[in-house]
Amino acid sequence: MSLSKSVTGSLLSAPTVLYMAVFFIVPSLILFAYSFWSAASYQVVPDFVLKNYLGSLTSPLFWKVTFNAISIGLWTATITLILAIPVAYYLVYVARSQTILYLILLTWFSSYLVRIYAWRTLLGTNGVLNTVLLQLGIIDHPVGAFLFSSFAVTITLVHIYLPFCILLVVASLSEIKRDLIDAARDLGTSSIGAFCKVIAPNAANGLIGAFMLTFILVAGDYVTPQMLGGSSGQTTGLLIADQFRKTGNWPLGAAQAFLMFLVSLAIYFALLTAGRMSGLVVHRPRKKKEA
């Protein structure tokens, strides 16, 4: 006896679908409902108001921290992707062993918080960077601005999310055969030309995916900005977390979470449109084959 393909497919995916439905979709819907409720003295009251959204949209603080989060996210994702592409190219097309890939995975064995503290040590007033610069005579007193700046936040987030981004880029390049590079070179392009004209367009969706996933994770990260960002470390993630933890205004936090979600979505589509307009992402109209 054999099951039809659709039945087999449903059975195989059922546990995940069920899990995601119970622990992601339902909570998200509850959160969405909350975003229209109102809060009074640490109590959530069922209601239907738009003030959580309207209040956030008209609040300068919300826009300031959202701008912070997006700017940190875009910078980090851009730098991470630029650093990840050559490594992934090397791993997919040049290296014959997987050792380096395993070494990259190994970095995940170190704790997130430990790495943040490591950067505090490196960048602090008595940190490695200041000491070296002092010794070299480049500066005559420790620079405090290394720490508690968007520079510190970005450098740390790049460090944390780079391995993740490399894996995503490796996955998207792996689907593109080495032959295509040879063919492009055979037809007159340099190696860099071959990457730009053949690899990048074919990997574009994967590369945008890697960028966006890194962006979303970074823009939503509120621990690193909080611990290393100083006054510039106020991000939407932290603001939202505060609504839930400190102020107890769950409806406002929920509304802000959904606004952040919409902002991320908008950035994704902006990126995709830019990619298509520049010709980097090829939009293939799927023609129906004649029967």
Binding site: D182, A183, D186, L187, G188, S190, V282
Partner: peptide, 21 residues
């Protein structure tokens, strides 16, 4: 002389045609 500057062109075993074009 690198491959891109040789007066030689190649037909690859698996064709290596560009899927985005």
């Amino acid at each position: 002389v690198p491959p891109e500057r040789r007066p030689v062109n190649m037909v690859f075993q698996r064709y290596a045609l560009f899927p985005h074009l």
